[in-house]
Design a protein around this nucleic acid. Structure first.
Lengths: 234, 234
DNA sequence: TTCGCGATTATGTATAGACATTATCGCTAA
DNA sequence: TTAGCGATAATGTCTATACATAATCGCGAA
């Protein structure tokens, strides 16, 4: 005999997955489920709250609970940390800061990030190397208004991403993944032929609404991939 | 004044994010937090359960609760549905089945999917077109043991992905994203030059442990990107 | 008819208590 | 010293209740 919580959850998920309860269908009220399963409202409430958190249903006060419209599908992708990945694989990792400057934000970046023109940004280019083979080029902007202490940081011990993550926990992130052909300069730095397909991961992070950083990481396509796993029913 | 639940959650998340409570750190017991915040155990319990569900902490009876080891970072990416995307953008969408056959699974695919050699698979190649411009090429394997009714389906109205999603809800999926240079045949079909960087999304789905389908979707890199948003604090 | 407002109702948050489950700790006996 | 076992302590699940909050419904007034 399983727990009631799980049984209610399974029942509802099955009805939704099978299509018996289509998107938009108003599922029974808490007090109805309560009667059906002979349990307290708290139990039903916790089940429904969990399903709502997972995006399967939408709840609105007074109106009730309906099966959520299937949003476009989602994939959860793992984004590897170079140092960690290297340690696990038992290879040597190092990084090199190729460029460092402080500049007012350019127009395009201001648009992307929603920052006012003229905001001072720390601009960094970092090459990630494992066993003497370049693995990725990282181009990063750090908002000095949000992270003033980055100004004096030398990034001697940790690459910018790791350093930031430890100092500024982000609460919101936006990701974009693209494929591009490496141009001459990029190809040279990554040690591949010009035109090689590369995976570009762009990530912008905010902390409580304040823009923190933008990173554009370019991986040689023949050497890297993003892997993910996703269970919609948790 | 925020809700207590949220305040406790914010506090704990902040301590973990800031590194004050490093991975492995044993966080206060429920009764300690209960005393600290002057609330009932249920309140604390619900917060900790939620954080555990989100993977931030690990709970064990009698032993207590510890900060979880950071898994590699995750990105949640939206995977657009062509028909839906087209409708929203107000452009015409159509698709064309380029190839269809039923074959025993090949060795490499058997390895990837964990199916026994010789399993009969429906193999489909589909070209997705919007406003007469090819948008993506989809190469798909469908497990006829799990979805026998696919055998007789003509895919006249809906492309295979849409058709499958309506019939066989998946419970588990694996995603891989890569960048590749288009070879001659691929380039011709997508209407791009040979060598153009393309984004390749591979997805394998299971339903309750039974393999359902594998899709490899190739997008011209200059025309497509995957976009995602992720809030660790929900 | 339509606007506005109060009553109603479903969900949101929280409490205090109960019993179940499962590791761990520490004592006892071989 | 160690194997085994019972006490103990922490989390897991559930109940019954209370009050807060938000959105809708329906009534009455303009």
């Amino acid at each position: 005999m399983k727990h009631l919580h799980q049984r209610i959850r399974d029942d509802i998920e099955a009805k939704i997955m099978s299509g018996e309860w289509a998107p938009g269908y108003r599922i029974p009220f808490e007090h109805e489920l309560m009667a059906e399963y002979g349990c307290s409202r708290m139990t039903v409430n916790k089940v429904l709250s969990t399903l709502a958190a997972n995006g399967l249903i939408t709840r609105r006060r007074r109106a009730g609970t309906v099966v959520a419209e299937p949003s476009s599908q989602q994939a959860v992708l793992q984004i590897q940390d170079f140092a960690l990945e290297a340690a696990r694989a038992g290879v040597e990792y190092r990084f090199k800061i190729l460029h460092r400057s402080i500049e007012p934000i350019d127009a395009a970046a201001a648009q992307r990030t929603g920052l006012p023109a003229g905001t001072r940004m720390l601009c960094l280019s970092t090459l990630h190397v494992m066993d003497d083979v370049p693995q990725a080029l990282e181009q990063r902007l750090i908002n000095l208004a949000t992270v003033p202490e980055a100004d004096k940081e030398t990034f001697k011990d940790d690459p910018p991403g790791t350093w930031l993550l430890r100092r500024v926990p982000w609460t919101d992130a936006e990701h974009i993944v693209r494929a591009v052909n490496a141009d001459g300069a990029m190809a040279k730095r990554l040690g591949v032929q010009t035109g090689t397909a590369c995976l570009v991961l762009e990530r912008r992070t905010w902390q409580a609404g304040a823009f923190v950083t933008e990173a554009r990481i370019t991986y040689p396509g023949d050497r890297h991939q993003l892997v993910g796993r996703f269970s919609p029913v948790a």
